[in-house]
């Protein structure tokens, strides 16, 4: 019993939705993954940070709507992040609504501004070392969002077809065909 509870706690399939401490553990476990996902999709440090923060704010405020359907909370977080990324691609003036409320008090913290600046510079410097990735990312952004989603989840985030199907709420067959078609369009664009 103790073992199963521990396992559940580790992959967050079953957890107390009213416990802020548990959500804190979820945040610790998944923030870097969600931020990385947003960064690899949009290629901008500040926007990726806003998307990640907005994702966790929305998740925290809507945690009661989360239902375990065979996947851990990770798929749910990726789903929220994907929606936020799509909002950004639809409207380039993307300004997260919930995080916007917090950002004034957060941004006024000078120590944090220094951290942001350092991370932004590091991220931009690091990106220069990933030439092949940059090329793929630039071409991927020109594709329809439905192809961007599946390709980035499969090849940037290394998710399985089953996981992608859960994140995007699309049947596995649809994911496979979107992946195959998207990859072919991307290949032609890159050749």
């Amino acid at each position: 019993m103790a073992l199963s509870l521990k396992i559940n706690r580790v992959d967050f399939k079953v957890f107390d939705k009213n416990d802020a401490q548990v959500f804190g553990e979820i945040y610790d476990a998944f923030y870097s993954k969600i931020f990385g996902y947003a960064f690899r999709r949009v290629g901008d440090y500040d926007i990726a940070r806003d998307i990640a923060a907005e994702t966790f704010l929305k998740a925290y405020l809507n945690i009661h709507h989360y239902r375990f359907e065979g996947h851990s909370v990770s798929a749910w977080l990726y789903k929220i992040a994907t929606n936020e990324i799509n909002l950004f691609f639809r409207n380039q003036k993307y300004r997260p609504d919930l995080f916007g409320q917090l950002s004034h008090e957060v941004i006024s913290d000078r120590e944090l501004l220094v951290v942001f600046d350092k991370e932004r510079q590091d991220a931009e410097r690091d990106m220069a070392q990933f030439e092949a990735f940059n090329e793929v990312q630039n071409q991927l952004k020109k594709l329809d969002v439905k192809y961007q989603e599946v390709i980035s989840l499969k090849y940037f985030e290394e998710k399985s077809i089953l996981e992608i199907s859960a994140i995007l709420e699309k049947p596995e067959g649809t994911v496979k065909s979107l992946l195959s078609r998207g990859l072919e369009i991307l290949r032609k664009k890159m050749s």
């Binding site: 959500f23 690899r40 405020l61 990106m127 070392q129 092949a132 940037f156």
Partner: peptide, 26 residues
Amino acid sequence: RMQGLKKPTPATQHQAYLKVPILNTR
């Protein structure tokens, strides 16, 4: 080639600073 693509993993030191304001929103 896509499967073997090397991907950037940006640092997330800022994560700790955002945690408290996020957990206080509710």
